[in-house]
């Protein structure tokens, strides 16, 4: 599948290598700058976390700098991320410090270390769209389902293809696998790194959830993203 960049086109021979170069390495490189831009929780994520019952134990898979792990002080949240640099920021930053019923570790989003069928809930925000094949995106959803206890639910956010009002301007019919530049300027020097994304069509994440054996409870569109809440079936 061709990968369309805003500046160039790439053909990934190996999806794992692509994810390594254009997701993991990029986040390790841009971590401090990225972290500064990610401090405000999105309303639906915040509401979901705030409505978890007291004493719930949940996951934040791909927690980045940990901006969501301390939203609700009555629950225990384990955050994981593939980027050790982002986890270091989550650990040393005030996100973990000010509210201590949380913990973080370095882990992959498919090969996860979480105990099977133990968790009351999970969130994975802006993560699954970084896996480079349909099969790997499905595996990522399956890993979330595997960790949920019976009756447990999960909230997943992915970037939408349909966002013609955004500055990116993508819309229905455009290429779904894209490279998105991240630009940093330091002392007048401009550095550009490219992140890989799979942009989700309307209904696509729900289809992944069903194919992974989950049951969709609720879904919608918020700020250029598709979101879905689901449970095991």
């Amino acid at each position: 599948m061709p990968i369309q960049s805003q500046s160039a086109t790439a053909h990934p021979a190996d999806p794992i290598e692509l994810e390594h170069t254009h997701v993991h390495a990029v986040y390790d490189k841009i971590a401090p700058h990225f972290s500064q831009t990610r401090y405000k929780p999105w309303p639906i994520v915040q509401r979901y976390l705030e409505t978890r019952p007291r004493g719930s134990v949940g996951l934040d898979i791909g927690c980045g700098n940990g901006k969501y792990i301390s939203v609700n002080p009555e629950i225990y949240v384990l955050g994981s991320d593939r980027s050790s640099k982002l986890i270091e920021l989550a650990c040393t930053g005030k996100e973990v410090g000010k509210k201590r019923f949380v913990d973080v570790g370095i882990a992959d989003g498919i090969e996860t270390p979480f105990r099977t069928s133990r968790f009351d809930f999970a969130i994975s925000i802006a993560v699954v769209h970084h896996f480079a094949t349909p099969q790997r995106r499905l595996e990522a959803v399956k890993s979330i389902l595997r960790a949920l206890r019976q009756g447990g639910t999960a909230l997943v956010y992915v970037w939408a293809l349909e966002q013609k009002g955004s500055r990116r301007g993508w819309d229905e019919g455009h290429a779904q696998d894209v490279m998105v530049p991240w630009v940093t300027e330091k002392d007048g020097a401009r550095t550009v790194v490219e992140r890989y994304y799979h942009l989700y069509r309307k209904g696509e994440i729900e289809a992944d959830v069903e194919a992974a054996g989950g049951k969709v409870i609720e879904g919608g569109y918020e700020r250029d993203n598709w979101w879905v809440i689901f449970e095991g079936s």
Binding site: L78, D103, P113, F114
Partner: peptide, 24 residues
């Protein structure tokens, strides 16, 4: 890593998932 967390993690190797020895 908090001690409590050890109660919620198991071996990451997929093949171990079905073994009772993958946890704790």
């Amino acid at each position: 890593m908090k001690l409590l967390t050890a109660n919620f993690v198991q071996c990451t190797v997929k093949a171990c998932g079905s073994s009772p020895d993958c946890f704790p």
